[in-house]
Structures are given as C-alpha cells and as structure tokens.
Nucleic acid binder design. Structure first.
Lengths: 159, 159
DNA sequence: GTCGCTGCAAAGTCTTTGCAGAGAG
DNA sequence: CTCTCTGCAAAGACTTTGCAGCGAC
C-alpha cells in the first residue's frame, strides 16, 4: 500500500458471532433477556449494508420472518436499547427519519448522493487530525464527530 | 493576521437590510406576497444567534408580537419556503427536531456541546481542501457538506 | 415461578393540509 | 378585484407507552 493513501473507503471489522456474543453479554449484564426478536433485529442490521430506518428494518424482518410477527414497537424499543448501548449509531441526515447503522465498524464519515440516496463511507486521517487540532484550540473535549458530504455520485452524473 | 491561521470561528456577513431586500426580490420573482408574518419570521431568525427550532421561533414571535397572533403553521410554511430558497439551512443534529439557521453566513461547520447544547461555528481550510480531494477521487460532484463535532465545552468541563 | 418482553392499540409529538376569510399587489 | 396567505383545526407521519398475556431464565 502506498504511504500517501490516507483516505479509506468502506470498513467493517466485527464478525457476526462476535457481535452477537457481545450483545448477549450486554443483555446479561443489565438483567435483560435475550429474545428471538432482539436477535433477528441485530442480525438484520448486520446483514444489511444499508443504513436502515426503523420502518425499513421492520419490513425486512416481516419479509424474512413472517411467522414471528414482530411489532414495529419492538423494533423501536430494540433500536433505542442498541443505541443506548452504543451497538448502533443513529444518523439524521436528510429531511426526515433517523437511520441506524451498526456501530461496530470503525469510525467513518458519509458521502451521500442526493439523487439516488446511496451512502459511501470513508475515513480521512488528515481531517481527523485537523478536528483534534481545532477542538484543542478551543479547550473543547471532543467525544464524537460526524461529517457528511452531499452531492451527485459518478453513476448519477452519467444518467 | 498570522498566515498559519486557517481556522476561523463565527462568521456573519450580510446585514439585515440587504437580507430583507433579497427576500423581497425573491418573493416578487416567484409571485409570492410579502406579508408581515414573513417579515417577522425573517427578522427573528436574523436577530437570534441561536439555531432555532420551529417551536422556539414561534414562541419568540408570540412573545415579541403577541398581537400578530402568528400561527405555528405559518412558521412551518415560511421555514419551508426559506429553506427551498436557500435563505435558511436546516440542521438535524441531535435526537429530535430540526433546527434552522440563516444561510447568509459563510459556509461553516458546527461544534456542539452535549452538556449545554451550545453551538460554536468554525471553518477550516485544510478540511475543506481534503473534502474536495476525496470527492475528486471518487468522481463525486460535491454540492454541499456539513460537519459536526460533539463533546464538552470548556465551560461545562469546569463545572 | 418470576419478571422482563412482546404485540396491539391508543396516545403522544411534530409537521402538514384543507378551508374560509383576510390582505397584498 | 384577484389570488395568495393566514389562522384554525383536523389530519398525517413517526414514535412512544400502557396493558395483559407470553416466554426466557
């Protein structure tokens, strides 16, 4: 790898077994129960590379496990639980509706195509460095950050 | 000014008269009417250095011009109009509720204190440069971008 | 068995819309 | 005068909550 490359696209680090196990440990630690609904929600989030809205997630689950008859309320409740536990992260870009993604990936930012809605992820070391420099100047203790670039992707430009 | 300074905080460029005039021109161009409610909304946005939610804006107006009895629906309608015309920009950081700010300032990013909610604005040239470099690599046509840094401000750390 | 979880439906938020009268141009 | 705006209230979208029965442990 060339040493000049400081931007990386698309990172995924944790395997499903590991993720599931961590989730079980988390539940046990808080006296919560491991239910089939919770597993299905986690699995569906894991297997989707998209950023999912609660409703989209609900539909995917209905489709794949119609017999479970999982309620939308459970999806919301589980997403809140997962967000509080930092297993998923919520994003609120566009006009309406939060989207969720697993937080097991490495930190990354987002490039969003306003035509087709496709989200590309990236990390750039230089930007990360500057962010630290800026908050240091202000005496601000950085906990997290997010960056979104909006525009038109290559594919949509060629349409 | 030292040449090393590439980060700037808090920028405001357009005066109210100019802003108001642009708004009137915009309205005329689209066969829309200049109403007292629209003026009050624009003025209140201008005079607030905060990022306002529709409800907060509505309350400020009720307080200052109780006789106008401006409806919340008008606030929403006017904000949509202003957003479509790129006079204001909406931000959807935190958990719920969009916030609006005038788009007449120069482009800037946001540093948000998760304790007290204070928002600091900044621009960093190096980051802007990198963003362009990244989208160029992807053949992506950047239209806009936004960046938020979350953490704890100096004041709140000392509490 | 106990106690948390689930689905359902009802209740909350926040935002948008239909309508009839008011008001800008 | 005309045609858009406005306030009101009703309707919509999205999310949360109360409850009684179900199910993990």
């Amino acid at each position: 790898m060339a040493s000049k490359v400081t931007t990386n696209f698309n990172t995924k680090t944790v395997g499903y077994e590991e993720l599931l196990n961590d989730f079980k440990v988390l539940l046990k630690k808080n006296n919560l129960k491991f239910t089939i609904q919770r597993e299905v929600i986690l699995e569906t989030l894991y297997n989707s590379n998209e950023h999912l809205t609660p409703e989209l997630l609900y539909n995917l689950i209905q489709e794949k496990y119609p017999d479970l008859n999982t309620g939308i309320a459970t999806v919301y409740r589980t997403l809140s639980l997962l967000e509080d536990s930092n297993v998923v992260t919520s994003l609120s870009f566009g006009a309406q509706g939060k989207k969720y993604e697993l937080g097991t990936k490495e930190h990354h930012d987002h490039i969003i195509c306003t035509e087709c809605g496709t989200i590309t992820e990236f990390v750039d070391e230089k930007i990360e460095e500057r962010q630290h420099a800026i908050t240091d100047t202000l005496g601000f203790k950085m906990l997290d950050h997010s960056m979104q670039i909006y525009g038109i992707c290559k594919k949509c430009q060629n349409k």
